[in-house]
Amino acid sequence: MVTKRKAVALISGGLDSMLAVRMVQEQGIEVEGINFYTGFCVEGHTHAIRNHDKKKKKRNNALWVAEQLGIKLHIIDVIEEYKDIVINPKHGYGAHLNPCLDCKGFMVRKAEEWRITNNFDFIITGEVVGQRPMSQTAKRMPIVMRESGAGNRLVRPLCARKLEATLPELEGWLDRSKLGEISGRSRKEQIALTRQWGIKDYAQPAGGCCFLTNQQYAAKLQDLWTSRGTREYELDDIMLLKVGRHIRPNADFKLIVCRDDGENNFATGYKNRFISLYANSHEGPLALFDGQASTENLKLAARIVARYGKGKHASVVTVQVSEPRESEGQELNVTPLDTTEMPREWIL
């Protein structure tokens, strides 16, 4: 009897990993998926936080893709281990704070550990040579094979014919002639494959698979590191960077002003960690205060909060300022900050 070979696939939820799995399934390989949760992933909660995203499908795309492919998906929490990748990337960052090359090496290494523990034969990813400037150039792809320890058990089915033959190809587990030779950023060939396999619905990630490739997000993360004087972070810190307007009037404090009810609800969960502010006299957003709570700073924060509420044109707005865990607090009567008093640089 011929042994059925098994592959573990890195599933991001995007189209490429979906097609890569499908391509090896076509060759009779049994596949299971693995998805790493770093805390920066675009998938998941973020859809749930903001109101305006309500119309969007709230599905977790990695799970959805797995279901479409009929494979099991294991979601792995790598939040702690991933910190070192973000804080000290050996190969540096891409356009923003995205350590793509180190990140790929890390994920493939974790997949290799999983492969060995679970007795699978090889690893597949949806990478396409020449698609991403940092991690997917022909020169850099071998780095991931080497540094992850996966070596030639790492197969990129979509562009396999553009690369050296891997172990599954040499052993005949995979027929190289039926693998892809896609390269570059054009999506033409991927779209042709969706037609060939009748795939009608798929996620189209804009940019990268995580927030670290997002310019505004990276600016907020950099500000967090600079203001704290350390690059250490907790999951809550990086979650909050996805919520609200982040306004830093000076080095001493930052204010997170929610933009809608969804964010207000989300931020309410953090009232036990931060001083919180909201207008009592007028409708308005909830804001979290992060920094040194001097009288002057709190007053300025209250004026900012007033500016974002319905009382922005009123002469006086009463703002409730509550210490962490306290529902009551002090009330400040302030004049909402005028637009001219708020320089653009304050908004991170």
């Binding site: 998941g44 909660h45 859809h47 749930a48 709230k58 599905r59 977790n60 799970l63 959805w64 797995a66 279901e67 494979i71 099991k72 998906l73 979601i75």
Partner: peptide, 16 residues
């Protein structure tokens, strides 16, 4: 408490 769980946990259960 996250409403997303109402979708994601059943999806995970189905595939497993």
């Amino acid at each position: 408490s996250d409403p997303g769980a109402l979708h994601d946990i059943p999806a995970w259960c189905r595939i497993h």
